[in-house]
Write a protein that binds this DNA or RNA. Structure first.
Lengths: 146, 146
DNA sequence: TTATTTTAATTTGCATGCAAAGTATTTGCA
DNA sequence: TGCAAATACTTTGCATGCAAATTAAAATAA
């Protein structure tokens, strides 16, 4: 156990922290055209894949905090992108339902992945795949450590 | 340009987002013993490496936002970990100086990297190295895109 | 059935991340 | 020298992330 590990350049975590912040920042401008933030974009992607899901399901898919999710969904509902409906069979649950505008936003968003990937001049698709696999390992290792 | 890219499972960014949040969350408990947050820990690591630096230098090293840095340093100063001194040669600048307590905290922190790495059961050191290299590429590609 | 426990969301308080505006100082140029 | 432009920070407003407390409803046990 040495002090050498306590160095920023040796910290996987700091790398992740910087990379995550950098890439979220990169999304900011393209997403501004859609009038949504990055976490809101994540929610939209989840809903474009599967609509009319419970908030709990959305929390699991996106890994966004439940408390934050409430606030995020409220803002998105205010923008008219979705509606939050009570589940008639279990009144504790709420179902999130995209509005036509929410559905339509997908078309405006379709080019965003390309806009972003254009900024990665030094990473090819193989490396991107490797990176995603390694990140999955990180997330899995850290999951459910209650 | 297909809709298939607009899928959470195909999003490098979402992987990064989840991984970064997960790992910062993992640091929460160990750091609570030191009474600091993760960004504060990053600042401490930077200062343990090099003390008496300007705030601008700290911002560059840590990649923490300047506005946030002001707040973070203020809290750390309140805790007695550091002092913020005016640069006598350039009164716009401030120098950050660790107190003896700030220096001493390093000893209590020395085991944290091990505590964290123990949680990575499915990643070996080679993969960790690969991951860090790939993340550096990401950060570099996205830097200075003003 | 009633009481206890669990589940699903919301709310609250604190700590950032980030953009934009504001404040001192210092530089640089006419 | 004098003033505009650049620097180095700080402040402010908004949007999360996260833990903890709270509320409402359903499931389970007694």
């Amino acid at each position: 156990m040495s002090f050498e590990q306590l160095t920023l350049k040796n910290q996987l975590c700091h790398r992740l922290y910087m990379a995550s912040n950098s890439i979220v920042r990169a999304y900011r401008e393209p997403l501004m055209k859609l009038n949504i933030t990055y976490p809101q974009y994540v929610v939209m992607m989840a809903l474009w894949e599967q609509d009319k899901v419970t908030i709990a399901a959305l929390v699991e898919t996106t890994m966004i905090d439940g408390g934050a999710m409430t606030q995020i969904l409220k803002k998105m509902a205010d923008k008219g992108l979705l509606e939050i409906i009570k589940d008639q069979y279990d009144k504790r649950k709420r179902l999130v339902d995209l509005t036509p505008q929410g559905q339509a936003l997908k078309i405006k968003a379709v080019n965003i992945p390309n806009e972003i990937s254009c900024q990665f001049s030094s990473i090819n698709s193989v490396q991107a795949g490797q990176l995603m696999q390694l990140l999955d390992l990180v997330v899995n290792d850290l999951a459910d450590k209650t």
